[in-house]
Design a protein around this nucleic acid. Structure first.
Lengths: 153, 153
DNA sequence: GATGAAAAGTAGTGACC
DNA sequence: GGTCACTACTTTTCATC
């Protein structure tokens, strides 16, 4: 599963634009189309490339209010952790979620259609998860950068 | 630019898997392949779909330490804001960045190869941006959810 | 063990209804 | 929006290094 120089270049290019054709890809990494294809296939098999997705502009599909929410959970109720994690997984408005060291135990990126929508969502979150001690909300005023691009040296 | 029901379904499907063929897509949204293609093309033209990308597993390409960093900037030096934003844009380890209301002015998602790498990165950040008053770092212990999926009702 | 060239198969595109 | 013909891309085969 060692990555060759070509593999790394493929990863770099595919993270920028996955609609690139194999011929273009092949040319840019200095391989034949069929070779590039085999490499790409292997990268997918090995789950180096997890999947290919379209990136949608939230502003173009209804309202778009982003919030960063730091959630602090009761540490003495570990049995309520899985339900919380399930809620995160199942709630489409929760775009991203990390468990962290430090103050807020969890940080969530929430994308709601409006402030009202967010408010309802936060209410539901509290209702469904009695182990949430408190949470702090930061309204996103400006999105500087968005992406899941992994730097490939 | 009003989205039809089919458009919304296309967006939902393409956010899950952009390698789906037009025939599959067409079948799932109840259109003919060429109709689905036209819809998709228009969604791209109108920048509803911004781009298509491969999602790469950071663990499979070298180390992977994620950090959430809250940065507080000096409010009385607005001329240093553009350089900071340029640094964010140009630094590949900064995966995401938001400007927020509330305490930390900016929140960054950083992906480094190691703690040492992160440390060097943070040093460089401070050096290049004298308007950073302070910053707090949270180590990501667990990534619960990752993605840019926009819920399409 | 992986590569590249070429053939065969499949998918995407555009004109027309 | 659907049908069809055309083009382009992808995938497999096969010989080669």
């Amino acid at each position: 599963m060692a990555l060759t120089k070509a593999d790394r270049n493929i990863l770099r290019l595919m993270q920028q634009d996955a609609t690139i054709t194999l011929s273009e890809l092949a040319e840019q990494v200095g391989l034949s189309p069929s070779s590039a294809q085999r490499r790409l296939q292997k990268l997918r098999e090995d789950k180096v490339i997890l999947r290919d997705v379209s990136i949608v502009d939230p502003k173009k599909v209804g309202g778009a209010v982003s919030m960063l929410v730091e959630v602090e959970l009761e540490r003495d109720r570990p049995e309520l952790l899985p339900p919380f994690q399930r809620w995160v997984a199942e709630t489409p408005e929760v775009q991203e979620a990390w468990g962290t060291s430090g103050r807020g135990d969890y940080t969530l990126v929430i994308l709601a259609q409006s402030v009202d929508h967010f408010d309802a969502l936060a209410d539901r979150m509290m209702e469904l998860n009695p182990n949430i001690r408190k949470f702090t909300t930061s309204v996103v005023l400006k999105t500087l950068k968005r992406g899941l691009v992994v730097p490939v040296e």
